[in-house]
């Protein structure tokens, strides 16, 4: 059942993971809801919808943002990247391998946001200290691992074992 006929909608055009997209979206729809339910990019997760947990972390014009704290309409004309795009491009492959080998994920719900956040850190600081890694991921909530394995994995991917 479509809700579009019942909503105030608008048209947006942007790129998502490098592909041009045009869509009609409800103006009140959050960016992450649109990516997930409008485009089927379910790798970005919804954990709190009020900007605290970091599970919906994605990139807009190359910078991490909370997907629940932007409206879909706000990426009109911008470039969006999700974990699906980052995976396909291979740019987070070292982090993904390090997370896997170190068991730095359990349920996996926080993991896409965690990987994108860690990748942004490593792009600006290739060999961060453990304290710096903890600080950088401190906006991303993980209930399973206790964080240490994630810190280990980010350090390893940064070549800082």
């Amino acid at each position: 059942m479509s809700d579009l006929g019942l909503e105030t909608t608008a048209t947006l055009a942007c790129t998502v993971n490098g592909e041009p997209v045009r869509a009609i979206v409800p103006v009140r729809q959050s960016l992450v809801d649109w990516l997930r339910h409008g485009l089927g990019l379910t790798g970005s997760h919804v954990g709190c919808e009020h900007g605290v947990c970091g599970a919906c972390t994605i990139l807009v014009d190359g910078r991490t943002v909370r997907g629940c704290l932007m409206l879909a309409m706000q990426v009109d004309g911008l470039a969006v990247e999700t974990i699906e795009g980052a995976t396909a491009s291979g740019r987070v492959v070292a982090l993904q391998a390090a997370f896997r080998e170190r068991a730095a994920l359990q349920c996996g719900f926080c993991t896409p946001g965690m990987v994108l956040t860690a990748a942004e850190l490593l792009a600006s600081e290739p060999r961060p200290s453990r304290a710096r890694i903890r600080e950088a991921i401190s906006g991303n909530y993980c209930r399973c691992t206790g964080y240490q394995a994630i810190v280990d994995a980010v350090a390893a991917a940064g070549g800082n074992d």
């Binding site: 339910h37 699906e84 080998e101 349920c107 896409p112």
Partner: peptide, 24 residues
């Protein structure tokens, strides 16, 4: 390491809200 972690790391997990049915 868990085999399933590859999919989860790539954002290809299948959690409840990722599942949709026609006419839901």
């Amino acid at each position: 390491p868990r085999a399933r972690s590859r999919a989860l790391l790539a954002g290809r997990g299948r959690y409840l809200d990722d599942i949709n049915l026609p006419r839901q």
